[in-house]
């Protein structure tokens, strides 16, 4: 039985970390969704340079470890005179990293819509943008929700990378509690429980959304 006192005695520390993890996750989630959508649109663009930028982004960023992406911001930027906090570097790194996966999920969703849909819409006189907005994206979003929710669950867990860079997140404060109490195992059990408090509702919300969209045709 884990010692609940470790949690209650250090509640304030735990909650500080929890709050920052929520913040970092929300910022990175919104940021990576926006950035990922832009990169996805770049990747399927008929303009070649945009396609190259999109492809280069995805292939570089998703093929190096998250830790190293954050390294670039934490250790790389000071060499050009910009020093940012661990929290900011971690959150930005997480955003940039997750965006590459989000972009691939969204691109795959768009590509999976049969060409006939676009042809029918364009043949009726709708513009490219109208076709995307009214015909392609509403169908793609249903397909994209499961892989996207995966990415966002990963994102919440990956936010623990902030702990490495003094990002004051849940993992960082978990380390503090552990070194204070020496009850390493119990301390991290509570850390894990707090991550679950974030990720399980996220899973359920995605499932709910998936069901609701599936009902409409």
């Amino acid at each position: 039985m884990p010692d609940i006192a470790i949690f209650t005695d250090n509640l304030e520390i735990y909650m500080k970390g929890f709050g920052n993890t929520v913040w970092a996750s929300v910022i990175a989630l919104l940021g990576s969704f926006a950035l990922g959508t832009i990169i996805a649109v770049f990747r399927i663009s008929s303009v070649k340079p945009l396609r190259w930028i999109g492809t280069a982004y995805v292939e570089f960023v998703r093929n190096i470890p998250l830790l190293l992406v954050v390294f670039v911001f934490y250790y790389g930027l000071p060499s050009v005179g910009v020093t940012l906090s661990g929290f900011i570097c971690g959150t930005v790194g997480l955003t940039v990293y997750t965006a590459s996966f989000v972009a691939e999920a969204i691109r795959a969703g768009i590509m999976s819509i049969p060409a006939g849909q676009t042809e029918a819409a364009r043949a009726s006189g709708l513009t490219y943008m109208q076709t995307m907005r009214h015909v392609v994206l509403p169908q793609a979003i249903k397909i994209v929700i499961p892989p996207l929710s995966n990415q966002f669950i990963n994102l919440v867990k990956n936010s623990s990378v902030l702990g490495v860079f003094a990002g004051f997140d849940l993992m960082y404060y978990g380390d503090q509690v552990a070194s204070k109490t020496y009850a390493t195992f119990d301390t991290y059990l509570f850390v894990a429980a707090l991550y679950l408090v974030l990720t399980i509702p996220l899973s359920l919300a995605a499932l709910q959304l998936e069901r609701r969209l599936a009902k409409n045709g």
Partner: peptide, 27 residues
């Protein structure tokens, strides 16, 4: 120029009436 395709290409996420009104309304 109206076009009718072999595989119909109706928009599956829209009701029949919305399939028909989309282009007249938007275009």
């Amino acid at each position: 120029i109206g076009m009718v395709f072999q595989h119909f290409n109706l928009y599956p996420h829209m009701k029949v009436v919305d399939n028909i009104t989309l282009a007249p309304m938007k275009s």
